[in-house]
Measured scan of single mutants.
Amino acid sequence: MPSETPQAEVGPTGCPHRSGPHSAKGSLEKGSPEDKEAKEPLWIRPDAPSRCTWQLGRPASESPHHHTAPAKSPKILPDILKKIGDTPMVRINKIGKKFGLKCELLAKCEFFNAGGSVKDRISLRMIEDAERDGTLKPGDTIIEPTSGNTGIGLALAAAVRGYRCIIVMPEKMSSEKVDVLRALGAEIVRTPTNARFDSPESHVGVAWRLKNEIPNSHILDQYRNASNPLAHYDTTADEILQQCDGKLDMLVASVGTGGTITGIARKLKEKCPGCRIIGVDPEGSILAEPEELNQTEQTTYEVEGIGYDFIPTVLDRTVVDKWFKSNDEEAFTFARMLIAQEGLLCGGSAGSTVAVAVKAAQELQEGQRCVVILPDSVRNYMTKFLSDRWMLQKGFLKEEDLTEKKPWWWHLRVQELGLSAPLTVLPTITCGHTIEILREKGFDQAPVVDEAGVILGMVTLGNMLSSLLAGKVQPSDQVGKVIYKQFKQIRLTDTLGRLSHILEMDHFALVV
């Protein structure tokens, strides 16, 4: 994948999101292997301009796509893939009243899908469409860049269908997702969380590099694949309309690839034109409109599966009536509230959605109805927002919020430890010299600072030695090549209790 991002070429006709291997024109390309080798690009942008032909009021008969309808489940399912879809609609009884809503608040519980998330729908649909058009064949390999849930859905379907599955996901995604993927037989590649989507090191860039190296491999490409919004247009939206008897006044959905909100909203605009569509985008993402909503100094966020630093091709923002931004604290607070007060075992993005819903639905009156999409299960986040310690460490809970008995030293300040200034190293000294210094002084790690004293990161003896043994660096290389740029900081005025929580999850903390 090139470091400079080429513009994806656009073909003359058809839909841009065809499933299957992508040609340089962004659509299915038939021909000899030699032709494909000559024409197939190194990668295709996940934010390529959409060429979708959908228009409100256009006859369904003019759609270029294969459409399906929700099917009634048999008493005995032939395999677990038949437990994807037909998820329950559940009334939220307490939270709406707590925040003064007059309307009825309903939750579409997508964590009841077989793999635990709304992404099971698009995973199965992308595979079925690729099999139907002859792209996927027995023994082929599926590769997908994902925040985890699409990966789980694909790995689940691949396990049943017999495909090899490789999932490329950023490091910030939970260990629970990784464990589930491994249990399903998927191979996992992790990428830096802070890598831009168009960087060769991003999950998108690495996935395309693997595709170019592995024979008979395919990126189904949830960011561009029409099967993504079509899955929701054909099934999720129809289920909502049936469950609500066609009567709903507002739908609120958090947005990642945009397939969920695009597919549902398009069908609702056709069948229930008075329904307002509300999009939820986390602070630090750029999906919301108008652009002024996205202006923030924050560039990272903890909530998973929603928000991006690019506009995915499948996201149709014209069908969203209003956007709201959400933050991590309210997302996790509301997710825990949904679990504790409503018994809905949902993930953090569901918290984002409901946090926005109780604001947006203030305009609705008694007798009206708001539906929220709860995308995934708490299963993926047992060591994250479900953990009091994690919430404390991230600053989303305060010590006084917890009532468990603490040891005698818990409320003492870090400054009472009488710490001395640490050994520091410059980023320009060599790895070999740094190892000598650390061994001589008896230290395992040291902060790396520039000549102005600005902290650049941390270097550890173990990481340097393993990097040297693996051949990633040489003793003569500058130590700046092996620094940890993500590390926890703590102030002298913070409590030892807070430091204790940090050290339970990290090997060190830097006192500043």
Rank of each mutant, 00 (worst) to 15 (best):
Q242G: 14
V118F: 06
P12S: 10
T260M: 05
G274A: 15
G31D: 14
K39W: 11
V90F: 03
K177R: 03
S27I: 15
R132S: 15
I219R: 03
E34W: 09
R182Q: 11
P59V: 01
L81C: 15
R125S: 15
H232C: 01
L241D: 05
M89A: 04
P33L: 07
G259R: 14
E201V: 04
S61T: 12
L251Y: 07
G246S: 08
E239V: 04
S199A: 05
S63C: 11
Q243L: 11
I240R: 01
A237F: 05
A183H: 14
L136R: 01
A38M: 05
N212I: 06
C272T: 08
N216C: 11
P41T: 11
G162F: 06
K75L: 15
E34C: 06
N113D: 05
R276A: 14
P215F: 12
K36Y: 08
E128L: 09
D140S: 10
E128C: 07
P170A: 01
H232F: 05
R276G: 01
G26M: 10
A195Q: 10
C244K: 01
K94R: 15
G139C: 09
A71I: 13
L77N: 09
T236L: 09
E144T: 06
T260L: 05
G85M: 01
L42V: 05
L136C: 15
K39L: 12
G185A: 08
G258T: 01
R196I: 09
T191S: 01
S174R: 01
T150V: 05
A183S: 14
A107I: 05
R125P: 13
G153L: 01
C109V: 15
K39S: 04
W43P: 09
K177C: 01
P229H: 01
E4W: 10
A183V: 06
V160Q: 14
K97I: 12
A8C: 01
E201L: 08
K75G: 13
K72R: 10
K102L: 07
R161W: 07
K82N: 13
R209S: 09
P46L: 04
E187V: 07
P88I: 01
K267R: 07
E131S: 12
E37R: 06
S27R: 07
P74I: 03
A24F: 14
G259N: 01
L241W: 10
G256N: 04
N212W: 07
I214W: 06
F99V: 01
P2F: 11
H66E: 01
T257L: 04
S254G: 05
P70A: 13
P16R: 01
T193M: 08
G185C: 01
A38R: 09
D47G: 06
T191R: 01
G100W: 07
R45S: 13
C109H: 01
C109L: 04
L101F: 05
T257Y: 01
P215H: 15
I44L: 08
V90N: 05
L251R: 01
M250F: 12
A231R: 03
K177G: 03
T260N: 05
A107G: 15
H17P: 10
S50N: 10
R91T: 15
A186V: 09
L77C: 07
N149I: 10
G85L: 01
K108W: 01
A114P: 03
A186N: 05
A231F: 07
A159V: 13
D79I: 09
G246L: 04
N149M: 01
L81Y: 01
H67S: 11
S61D: 05
M169P: 15
S3N: 13
V160K: 01
H203V: 03
P16I: 15
A130D: 14
C15W: 09
P12V: 09
T236I: 12
S227R: 07
F99S: 06
T193N: 15
G11K: 08
G134I: 01
T141A: 08
Q222G: 01
P273F: 03
A69I: 05
R91A: 01
L106I: 10
V90C: 15
C109A: 15
H66F: 09
G100I: 01
G162C: 03
Q242F: 07
K97W: 01
R164Y: 15
R58W: 12
V204C: 15
I44Q: 12
Q222P: 08
G205H: 05
K108L: 03
C272K: 01
Y233N: 08
K97Y: 06
E213M: 14
S174V: 01
P145C: 06
T5L: 05
V10M: 11
E110C: 03
I143A: 03
E9L: 01
L136N: 11
L241G: 07
S27C: 14
T13W: 01
D86C: 06
K30I: 04
P78E: 06
D234V: 01
L220A: 05
A253I: 01
L184K: 01
R18V: 10
L77E: 01
P138V: 07
K137P: 01
T135V: 07
D234R: 06
R209M: 08
K247S: 01
